[in-house]
Design a protein around this nucleic acid. Structure first.
Lengths: 196, 196
DNA sequence: TCGGCTATAGACCACATGGTCTAGGGCTGA
DNA sequence: TCAGCCCTAGACCATGTGGTCTATAGCCGA
């Protein structure tokens, strides 16, 4: 079986990524495409053309440690993006739309094989550290929206709607193989969020 | 390792389910808890106390055929629920809330181990028949909301928001182990949907 | 030149996986 | 009573799994 690695997180033109980074990037792509359990160590090895020794050298904790690193990576990336957008004094709705737009491009670029953000990672083993990492990422993103919206009770509600419509919309869009569904739900949510 | 089977789909008091039904019910619970790839044949066998022969007798297509049957089962169940609610002339927002409420109870009953609906099943193998089944289910639910909302372009948008906020909210809630997040996002979405 | 270290390389292992196959139990109608 | 059938039962298999281990390549400072 051939493994296709969506290039989403892979090196820009000629940046010589270190081994560790390559492992994180490739595994993130794979996890986002097939979920934690759907990806095997050898999938990752094939995708990176690295031997097993390297993986277990950089991630002695094996698959789970690698997955946690991947989650942390995407969590930081999105968090930074959010921080940057909000720093421009954009309204929350606009930021949500911006983020959704990037997800749409992402979905299209990977022909809907890959889930942006971390929807699929949620299919992680029970009460594990991985689940915790996903949970933390979610909390951070939620907090960004919440404070940007004023930190009130109402802001919390709206932040929830923002993230839910995004993750849910992605799921709908991916299944239907049409970014339309994501755009529609997020646009509507953004509209509501911008009301005061 | 012990497998806990949430009893969600299991027999009511003393209904003697047939072997096939037992397999569908148990596997659905497991798939909803751990995703398609996260569940092994022997997990299902352990949960049902059935030998391999029975499974492959009723589902010669193996794991995937069983998963498809499980998806069809939940698709029908939810679809019927939606039909019944809409038949009462309830407004779409109210139906959404009703559905969300049931999901909340479900989450709590299973201690947030299980995902209601089919969020996790989305982590299915690429372009398979299983993906198709999940996609179909989604379409049917979407259509219910859409027609109930009047079938206009705007109705389509609102239907997307409804489902997205539901699936997304479930994902948020499950990770945070708090149904609060689901309730918040869905309530807000319902509010918006009921506006005309 | 050499010692020591980090990182790569991949053989190897015990075990779990999905799936096949034969055997037989138990009910049915003749 | 018995033939035929549906279903249960579980041994068995090839392959894939996550993970360990030893060997060594390549570098850098002394």
């Amino acid at each position: 079986m051939t493994i296709e690695v969506p290039e989403t997180h892979l090196p820009t033109p000629a940046s010589p990524m270190g081994t560790k980074e390559r492992l994180i990037a490739a595994s993130l792509s794979l996890f986002q495409a097939k979920g934690y359990h759907g990806v095997s160590i050898s999938d990752i090895l094939d995708a990176t053309d690295l031997p097993k020794g390297s993986l277990y050298h950089h991630f002695p904790g094996g698959k789970e440690e690698l997955a946690i690193a991947a989650v942390a990576f995407i969590a930081d990336e999105v968090d930074a993006k959010l921080a940057a957008e909000f720093a421009k004094n954009k309204r929350a709705g606009a930021v949500l739309l911006e983020l959704a737009n990037e997800c749409v491009m992402w979905l299209r670029r990977t022909d809907f094989t890959q889930t942006p953000l971390l929807g699929l990672l949620a299919a992680s083993p029970g009460e594990s550290a991985l689940t915790q990492a996903v949970c933390d990422a979610q909390k951070r993103w939620l907090a960004r929206f919440e404070t940007a919206l004023g930190g009130t009770e109402d802001a919390h509600d709206k932040a929830c709607l923002a993230l839910a419509s995004l993750e849910g919309g992605i799921s709908l869009a991916r299944m239907a193989r049409s970014s339309d569904l994501l755009i529609r739900s997020v646009t509507l949510a953004a509209l509501h969020i911008n009301q005061r």
